[in-house]
Design a protein around this nucleic acid. Structure first.
Length: 325
DNA sequence: AATTTCTCCAACCGCCTCTTC
DNA sequence: AGAAGAGGCGGTTGGAGAAAT
């Protein structure tokens, strides 16, 4: 499971210090318990400083980077060890659907978890699990390791929605003119939506909503989703039948801003949950929901250009998260 | 029981960004 | 301005243990 300690360094103390304290060669590979002790003791008494100083002053034959990694990923006292809870898994999937492989950003929303841990968890467990999901017919269906629309997104949204937690819209205009993330989730109850009740711009029997000033309009026509003339997909009581992701260009050209609502514009990631004040007790019974997709179209498009803090601030308030355990 | 294959994950590598001089 | 060093990040590796043959 681990790399062997670097055989080029003699001695069982793991440090490999010679008598005059000079460095012959930096140690690599598995950390010994003695090295761990040294690093822990040093960090607890001196705190974090320059990592190369930490390595040197703690008497470790390691490079600063190695010390940093060991501390962050393994020795930090606030780390939560053990298996991921289903709630954490949900959150990871959801965050990944938004952020892609930005493991550090994802880890920042999971107290006690490290980016490395989450990355490993994703690459082993979740990726495999998603592979076993019934495949979508999306022509762009891709491996979940990419930062593209994926089963992950779908599964994540679906699952959260089952728990009555559903991102209703995102403000795609944000602060950047080339925002990449265009994630839309439609909530089709067949009756009224919370959005409707809140006076948002919703049309027709089943309605559509537009997104702030940049707008992407997405509609529900019968069982089909559309954006302007594009058929996005269809749903059947929560079971996705088709999922078509239109090119960004067409969205940009075809979907014009109506900008008829401006509420929550500064709160781009609105989470509707059971405590939102509306009576949505039956929501989970008749919801058809589709994550239309997170589009990463073109390399110049970067989620990082968004105000991620704004975007994500509400995620940490997921009611089902137990960060204490 | 022995061998092979698979899985998981700690740690490394290389690149990028930021800061300092 | 730009070189150097440090920190941070995501991708990848490789080895121990588990599972399969």
């Amino acid at each position: 499971m681990m790399r062997k300690p670097d055989p080029s360094v003699k001695g069982s103390n793991g440090g490999g210090n010679n008598s005059n304290g000079t460095t012959n060669k930096l140690r690599k590979g598995l950390w010994s318990p003695e090295e761990d002790d040294k690093l822990i003791n040093y960090m607890l008494t001196n705190g974090q400083g320059c990592w190369s100083d930490v390595a040197r002053n703690a008497g470790l034959q390691r490079c600063g980077k190695s010390c940093r990694l060991r501390w962050i990923n393994y020795l930090r006292p606030d780390l939560k060890r053990g298996a991921f809870s289903p709630q954490e898994e949900e959150l990871i999937i959801h965050l990944h659907s938004i952020l892609g492989n930005r493991w550090s950003q994802i880890a920042a929303r999971l107290p006690g978890r490290t980016d490395n841990e989450i990355k490993n968890f994703w690459n082993s467990t979740i990726k495999k699990r998603l592979k076993n999901l019934p495949s979508t017919s999306s022509p762009n269906a891709s491996d979940s390791s990419t930062s593209e629309p994926s089963k992950a997104a779908l599964a994540g949204f679906m699952s959260m929605q089952e728990q009555g937690i559903l991102p209703m819209y995102m403000d795609l205009s944000s602060t950047s003119s080339n925002s990449s993330l265009q994630s839309m989730v439609l909530n089709h109850t067949g009756n009224s939506l919370p959005m409707l009740e809140q006076g948002l711009n919703v049309y027709g029997a089943t309605g559509y909503f537009n997104q702030a000033s940049c707008v992407t309009q997405v509609g529900v026509n019968g069982d089909s989703f559309y954006a302007e003339n594009e058929i996005f997909g269809s749903v059947d009581n929560g079971v996705e039948r088709e999922l078509y992701v239109p090119p960004l260009e067409s969205i940009g050209e075809n979907l014009k801003t109506e900008n008829t609502f401006d509420r929550n514009i500064n709160d781009p990631f609105t989470l509707i949950n059971s405590s939102s004040g509306n009576n949505n007790n039956n929501r989970s019974e008749n919801i058809a929901s589709v994550a239309v997709g997170n589009f990463w179209l073109g390399e110049e498009l970067k989620v990082g250009e968004w105000d991620l803090e704004d975007l994500m601030k509400d995620v940490s308030s997921f009611p089902f998260l137990d960060f204490q355990s």
